[in-house]
Design a protein around this nucleic acid. Structure first.
Lengths: 157, 157
DNA sequence: TATTGTTATACTCTATAACTATA
DNA sequence: TATAGTTATAGAGTATAACAATA
């Protein structure tokens, strides 16, 4: 038989579909959880970089998140307007802006962190604790830089 | 309780970061694997819906993939121009286009499927077989319809 | 009146290029 | 010259709205 019968595969079994929709669902959950605080998942990613660290330049934050420095401008604009961060010229190098969480910004982060963790828990609810931990470990393993391979991180949060 | 010291969390520990970058990496791998066939991951998703099934309307394909019907138009345009699918009015309902894989389209799908599976394997390479299977099951579980009022375990797939 | 495919349009997101001020 | 931040612009991707053909 030259042409074996084509078998109908369920598209939803493709790993790409599963991972993509896992991402969509998790983002929807975290966005919804953070919405009452008037921030979204991407904003929270920035807060997470800033918290508990010395003031950073916008470019350093951008690099940590894998986004372009031009993309950071609007994000920091919004944070500054809300009083979440301060943006002052770095005395050591006045080309740089030193970005630092304010008191209210830190308070906001704490609420956001709780909301974010609750959303994570909701996302992982179908898994028992052991499986959830293994799931997390598997994700880390899969993202560990494959030696000798060229890898490019893109995008925030 | 004057505000406990803010702890610096590694942003890359957030589940959202892990899932997002897993998606980015897997997409990069599958896109690269499919590029020699002149298709990408999204095209492959469409092929996967069409293969081994009776001809479908554009809208049905779009719904299966969770995209808008207007988005399907250009995708099918490209496939038709390449001779991968035929697009003829459905005799039963002439508003519909019956989309069907051609012979060359099926041959292309077979090559694409092999390439896609190889990319999946590369993605999962850091995991042993048992963990990889568990990872897949966990993804399915996490995507199981959240509206299911009845929380009962349904034995995986 | 509702639905399928189509087109035109708008919107979101993000990157590239160019400008400024510093170094 | 080179770098950080800013601005304006462009591109990719996808959705919304309107229209023709069909039901």
């Amino acid at each position: 038989m030259p042409t074996p019968a084509p078998h109908a595969k369920e598209p939803h079994d493709a790993l790409g579909y599963l991972v993509k929709h896992a991402h969509l669902r998790l983002t929807a959950l975290t966005d919804a959880a953070l919405a009452p605080l008037d921030i979204d998942s991407k904003d929270f990613g920035v807060l997470r970089v800033l918290v508990g660290r010395a003031p950073m330049s916008q470019q350093a934050v951008a690099a940590k998140l894998g986004v372009d420095r031009t993309t950071m401008v609007a994000l920091i604009d919004g944070f500054e307007a809300k009083g979440i961060v301060t943006r002052k010229p770095d005395p050591a190098d006045r080309r740089r802006n030193a970005i630092e969480l304010t008191g209210p910004g830190l308070a906001l982060y704490r609420k956001a962190d709780a909301a974010y963790l609750a959303a994570e828990d909701e996302f992982l609810a179908p898994l028992d604790a052991t499986t959830a931990a293994l799931f997390r470990r598997a994700l880390r393993a899969v993202l560990a830089p494959p030696d000798g391979s060229d890898r490019r991180d893109r995008g925030a949060d």
